[in-house]
């Protein structure tokens, strides 16, 4: 067991964990942050994307011990009193159907807009290449990111 201390959505948590514990399982099963789902074994789908020290990572491909001392933001901690512009834009633009990819897609979009506040359609598509959606065909996701960008989505 390794003792780790992580700030998750603004609250500090400390646990003894097995070294093999995946960050996503740590978040879901130890911290109770079940808003971040697991979609694959190979880091392709991106459903589990969270921000680690402000940068998008796939939490299924990070060990909890690697996150020791860092700050994690999940979909559950993104709203700060009011929804993040990307969350609002996803609803407004119908950028989700079943919603399973949505937490990861939103976190990846937030990261994209943080690094490129006004991306082109091509840049949006490339910026989300690590996140799979099986429902939307991506068109409304692209539109949502454009909408969030227009509303100052990099926040």
């Amino acid at each position: 067991m390794v003792h780790i201390s992580v700030t998750v959505d603004g609250a500090q948590t400390q646990h003894d964990v097995e070294p093999r514990l995946l960050l996503v399982h740590y978040l879901r099963e130890r911290v109770g942050k079940v808003g971040t789902p697991v979609g694959c074994d190979t880091s392709n789908c991106g459903a589990c994307t969270v921000l680690l020290d402000g940068k998008s990572v796939k939490s299924c491909s990070v060990l909890a011990v690697q996150a020791d001392g860092s700050e994690i933001t999940t979909i559950e901690g993104l709203a700060n009193g009011e929804w993040h512009p990307v969350q609002s834009a996803f609803k407004e633009c119908h950028a989700l159907q079943c919603g399973y990819c949505t937490p990861g897609m939103i976190m990846a979009s937030v990261d994209l807009l943080n690094s490129n506040p006004s991306p082109s359609e091509e840049e949006i598509r490339a910026g989300l290449e690590g996140n799979l959606c099986r429902c939307t065909g991506y068109q409304n996701i692209v539109k949502a990111v454009q909408t969030a960008a227009a509303q100052g989505g990099a926040r």
Binding site: K33, V34, G35, I75, A79, Q87, G99
Partner: peptide, 11 residues
């Protein structure tokens, strides 16, 4: 969508 975009889901 309100639940789905905020992670208040029930998978």
């Amino acid at each position: 969508d309100a639940r789905l975009v905020t992670g208040r889901t029930n998978w």
